[in-house]
């Protein structure tokens, strides 16, 4: 189990568009509410109403400032982070019990809550901080890619996608088969230069990130201004205004037409 299955043709994963994420936390709480009653139940919160409230979350959004070369200003990039469902995930191979596994059919990395002993080693092996230990449950929790939604026959077809993707208001999260070069997500990655996190670690993440687009401001737009010939702007305006005719594009007087048919209210 802990040994990886042969690479699957199907590689389900997420493509996250850092150019559009506004950091609204919709994916974060949607994930929490689905999974705290779904496969990953419960996602425990400790001292939920006291100081230092913290809990298990499978998806978190960071905010970074990125200072571009030669610029005074930084831009803020919101950065959702969850399991990347790597192709060669050490979090799976280090697991002593086989509770952590990569599904052969679609590549989803899961933890079996029935057999996890809660040794936490998988969370040490993950460079992406994708695994969080649930103290009350005594097992490791992680993004399941909503395996209990995407195939769920009790849900409407349009709901059969990860909770975070369905929630995302700006459409910054995309779900699909990254093993299929023709899929929408693969095409997005190709078009937008989607990239891996920490590729040098060798985990081969399936999830991809789309980089923020170049901005279009004073740093890279050509300077331009509306023409200002010499002389009085007011006089020019007056001449311009004098030529205006209000009715010239109205060709027919509608009172001559029967427009009642257009009243459908």
């Amino acid at each position: 189990m802990t040994s990886l299955p042969p690479p699957s043709a199907k590689k389900l994963g997420l493509v996250i568009d850092l150019d559009t994420c506004v950091g609204c936390q919709a994916c974060v709480t949607s994930c929490k509410e689905w999974n705290t009653q779904g496969y990953s139940e419960p996602l425990t919160d400790t001292t939920p109403y006291g100081a230092d409230a913290s809990g298990v979350w499978l998806n978190r959004v960071h905010g970074y400032e990125v200072k571009e070369q030669g610029q005074d200003q930084s831009r803020i990039v919101h950065f959702p982070r969850s399991c990347l469902h790597c192709e060669t995930p050490a979090c799976v191979t280090v697991c002593p019990t086989g509770a952590s596994y990569k599904r052969a059919e679609d590549g989803i990395v899961l933890v079996n809550p029935e057999t996890c002993i809660g040794c936490k080693l998988c969370s040490w092996a993950c460079p992406y901080g994708a695994r969080e230990y649930d103290v009350s449950h005594g097992v490791m929790k992680k993004c399941t890619l909503c395996v209990d939604r995407i195939y769920n026959e009790n849900l409407e077809v349009e709901d059969r996608q990860p909770a975070c993707v369905k929630a995302c208001p700006t459409g910054a999260r995309h779900f699909g088969d990254l093993g299929d070069a023709d899929s929408k997500v693969s095409q997005l990655v190709a078009e937008r230069g989607g990239y891996d996190l920490l590729p040098e670690m060798g985990y081969k993440p399936v999830n991809k990130y789309l980089p923020p687009r170049a901005r279009r401001d004073a740093t890279n737009q050509k300077a331009e201004a509306l023409p200002k010939p010499d002389g009085s702007a007011f006089d020019r305006l007056f001449v311009w205004a004098d030529k205006l005719l209000s009715g010239k594009q109205a060709t027919v007087r509608a009172s001559d037409l029967d427009h009642s048919s257009k009243l459908e209210g």
């Binding site: 609204c24 936390q25 919709a26 974060v28 709480t29 949607s30 929490k32 509410e33 689905w34 009653q37 409407e156 349009e158 709901d159 909770a163 369905k166 929630a167 995302c168 208001p169």
Partner: peptide
């Protein structure tokens, strides 16, 4: 148990925000 956006609703067309989902 769970709250999500109504896909047929004119305002949000299925999406939900961080507050709504909480």
């Amino acid at each position: 148990k769970y709250i999500d956006g109504n896909p047929n609703h004119p305002v949000n067309k299925g999406i939900i925000c961080g507050k709504g989902a909480a």
